[in-house]
Design a protein around this nucleic acid. Structure first.
Lengths: 111, 111
DNA sequence: CCGATCGTCAACCGTTTGGTTGAATATGCC
DNA sequence: GGCATATTCAACCAAACGGTTGACGATCGG
């Protein structure tokens, strides 16, 4: 499967993995801390992180004992662009995105 | 799985199904015509269409013997909105979308 | 050096997925 | 009515998925 989009969507299809991505949206996290809120083994979370890394949705960097997980926005963008082609004939999302642009500009995310 | 997003992403994870969606972007199609370009059985395509319909990415309408398949942009939009949250802190896609807006306005899709 | 912590690996297990084939169900046409 | 066309259903299969447990290799702290 040389196709880059399939692993991205497959990774996003699992609610646990989407929850992990939402957590990483706030900050980079160690594997153990990622696993903490979930009712499943650390090994299971480790596998989920592997799937996300294979899809290039995250990267992992080892510093000492701890492996830090970090969002990788590029893969999101590729998939998002593909999807936008299917919404484009509907004017509604243009409005929505203009509204988003406005809030993004008037209320920029703090560092 | 009461979650609405998972079946959408799962449906999009298969390249055959994404190809079907691209075909439907041009026009509504009968099941047999959807199946024609693929090297697999009609039953397999029928199942793919079922998956897409379960995710509400398409609808099927029976007229006579023929079942017409039609894109349903709303499901795309929900998933797209979810994903935009992960790209939003990157300024690049704003530029891309502005360019898209421009082409969309200067070259509107004919009915 | 030793014990605790961090994370992955390997083997296993039940379920889902993506495909096949052949039969079944509508519907349209003559 | 009878035949061809359009689509799904049902049973089956191999492979992938999402989870478990237990052992293992690194690394930190005393």
């Amino acid at each position: 499967m040389t196709d880059a989009l399939s692993p991205v969507f497959a990774a996003l299809a699992d609610p646990t993995r989407r929850a992990i991505l939402s957590m990483l949206l706030e900050d980079d996290m160690a594997v153990t801390d990622v696993a903490e809120p979930f009712q499943m083994s650390l090994a299971a979370i480790s596998k989920h992180l592997q799937v996300l890394a294979d899809a290039h949705l995250i990267t992992r960097e080892k510093r000492g004992r701890v492996i830090w997980c970090k969002l990788e926005p590029d893969a999101f963008r590729a998939a998002s662009v593909w999807m936008q082609g299917f919404g484009q004939f509907e004017p509604v999302d243009l409005d929505a995105f203009e509204r988003f642009l406005e809030t993004e500009l008037t209320d920029p995310p703090e560092d």
